[in-house]
């Protein structure tokens, strides 16, 4: 497939390094950018995503807050009104429940409720997702809950290059963006990242693997697993496309319709609970846009309808390559 990076200088980075470099670059580019959150300054973040920012940009622009998720989110509203560009970190997405009224009721609605008086140039970063044996409420995939809050954009990169391009675009975006970083991807995903300016527009999906027989639609770390599944199946002679949504809001409806119409069969993968998960939205979109091009019902690979489990059970909860492959085979076998 075409490699869009082939003509630019790149560096081999982990997703975490790409995020850290992007924060450095955006703070250097725009002195309105301020970073706030728990342990983001001297400690450089519990995962080191904000490492070096405090030393480079100082205590005015890189601020350790009290353990107060609601006021972290709420203060971003005020900072944006005052003309700054806040980049806040919620230490784990599961802790966003303690900020939910500010995120849903205030951050997401600021532009609408003021009819465009204020540009909510707000980025909320949060790690999430399973597979690393964290304590309770550190791993939950809550993206569908946020997708149901009109006014919030949601970026969920699956590669190191996209982590850079989407984060830079999110910080420059005049709308609020929830930027979700997969825990397993911080050090588990690495790849070529363009040096210098690299922007990936929000709302444009990416074809991660070309293929004609079936498309796996995924986002964030599940794209990595979908690609492994596609590569395994390719060795058996199956042509499996992988569509990486990159952002679930805005949703690239046209890319979904194009891929599903071309392949006629689709599997949607998500880490969250099955009921009310974002896969349901993708499948409804397929039904709206290209139902008559389908050759089989669309399958869904999900977590189960239980709270995110403890470590000894999580491998039974989070979709893995085997479950994705099983869903693909099943969908291909149907008339």
């Amino acid at each position: 497939m075409e490699n869009p990076l082939e003509d630019v200088a790149t560096s081999d980075l982990t997703m975490l390094q790409a995020i850290n470099e992007t924060l450095h670059a955006e703070m250097a580019r725009d002195d309105r950018v301020v970073v706030l959150g728990e342990d983001v300054a001297r400690n450089g973040g519990v995962f080191r995503a904000t490492e070096g920012l405090f030393e480079k940009f100082g205590e005015q622009r890189v601020v350790d807050t009290p353990i107060s998720e609601a006021v972290i989110a709420g203060a971003t509203v005020g900072l944006a009104i005052a003309g700054l560009v806040p980049v806040a970190e919620i230490q784990f997405l599961g802790f966003s429940y303690q900020a939910m009224h500010q995120l849903a009721g205030q951050v997401a609605r600021l532009r609408y409720r003021t009819q465009g008086r204020f540009d909510p140039s707000i980025t909320i970063r949060a790690p999430f997702g399973g597979g690393v044996r964290t304590p309770e409420l550190h791993s939950d995939s809550l993206e569908a809950q946020f997708a149901n809050m009109a006014g919030l954009k949601i970026a969920m990169p699956a590669t190191a290059a996209d982590a850079k391009g989407l984060l830079a675009a999110s910080i420059r975006e005049p709308d609020p963006v929830l930027f979700l970083e997969p825990l397993r991807g911080y050090r588990g995903i690495r790849g070529d990242v363009p040096d210098g300016e690299h922007l990936v527009p929000l709302g444009v999906a990416r074809t991660a693997r070309e293929g004609d027989d079936i498309v796996i639609i995924a986002w964030s770390y599940q794209v990595e697993l979908a690609c492994r599944a596609a590569d395994t199946l390719r060795s058996e002679g199956l042509s499996v496309r992988v569509l990486d949504l990159r952002t679930i809001v805005p949703l690239d409806i046209e890319a979904i319709a194009t891929a599903v119409s071309h392949c006629g069969r689709a599997v949607v993968v998500q880490e969250s609970c099955e009921t009310g998960g974002f896969a349901s939205e993708v499948i409804a979109t397929i039904s709206d846009e290209c139902f008559w091009d389908l050759e089989a019902p669309v399958a869904r690979v999900s977590g189960y309808d239980v709270p995110y489990p403890v470590g000894m059970l999580e491998d039974h909860y989070v979709p893995d390559e085997a479950r994705i492959i099983a869903a693909v085979r099943h969908t291909l076998e149907l008339a």
Partner: peptide
């Protein structure tokens, strides 16, 4: 919180 953010 908004007012504190503005003041900050």
């Amino acid at each position: 919180p908004h007012a504190v953010g503005i003041a900050w």
